[in-house]
Design a protein around this nucleic acid. Structure first.
Length: 234
DNA sequence: GCGACAG
DNA sequence: ATCTTGTCGC
């Protein structure tokens, strides 16, 4: 058999085979739409990030008004992390919790920026694509490091980017977002083009390495984590 | 066989 | 991701 690992689900031990997960990724990959948003107005953009406290996934979602770039909504939710982190299978650890929170809270943004890869993934289905396909919404993957593929020319000036290629195909962009920082990796999640993804991310770059929605989402999750840790010590 | 390896 | 202090560099 292929590589596998065990998880505890509803009090029952279960064996998970990576090959099975890959087949799920391949089937979701086929459903990814790489389309232009056309003139569909972008009103809200949400950033999604997760912080961990043992097996608790603290999910932070920051929603911004695309026009004035103002933070209009912040959400904190806790979900149990049922899967371990395995490079290439992040979607199974973070995807479902993220989808659950988006549905539970009724957030309805036009674009979701997710701290992960989209199609810049071995099976063409990173967590951002996984979430995008399942909620049928535009998503953009924004990561700090490459999972697979490579780029010939490293961008050096802030704002510059060069293509990330994998298997001779362009799967993303390596964007220099801040001086002194390694470039960030942007890829299509779902229902958007790479060009549009890059422009939306760039519009939200302020002083940080990451675009504001992700920076805010990270802050929300980490602050909640700190609060819970402090609360626990009392 | 040895690294590399999203969060 | 998370554990952690100082410290090198722009």
């Amino acid at each position: 058999m292929s590589e596998s690992f065990k998880i505890r689900k509803n009090g029952i031990d279960q064996i998970i085979y990576l090959e099975k997960l890959r087949s799920i990724q391949r089937s979701i990959c086929k459903k990814i739409e790489i389309s232009d948003l056309q003139d569909k107005t972008i009103k809200f953009v949400s950033g999604v990030d997760i912080a961990y406290l043992n097996e608790e996934a603290i999910i932070g979602i920051a929603t911004f008004d695309f026009q004035n770039k103002r933070l209009v909504d912040r959400i904190i939710e806790i979900e149990k992390a049922k899967f371990p982190y395995i490079p290439g299978f992040l979607a199974f650890r973070e995807g479902l919790p993220i989808i659950k929170v988006i549905k539970k809270t009724g957030i309805d943004s036009d674009i979701y920026m997710i701290n992960a890869h989209g199609i810049a993934h071995p099976e063409g289905c990173g967590c951002a694509s996984y979430v995008g396909v399942l909620i049928k919404k535009p998503t953009i993957g924004v990561a700090s490091r490459i999972l697979c593929g490579s780029c010939k020319i490293k961008p050096t000036k802030v704002g510059e980017w060069s293509p990330l290629n994998h298997n001779r195909k362009k799967v993303g962009a390596v964007l220099k977002s801040k001086d002194g920082c390694r470039p960030i990796i942007i890829s299509v999640g779902n229902m958007i083009t790479l060009e549009k993804s890059i422009s939306v991310v760039k519009e939200f770059l302020k002083n940080g390495k990451l675009p504001e929605p992700l920076k805010a989402a990270h802050e929300i999750a980490v602050n909640e984590r700190r609060r819970l840790v402090a609360l626990n010590k009392k």
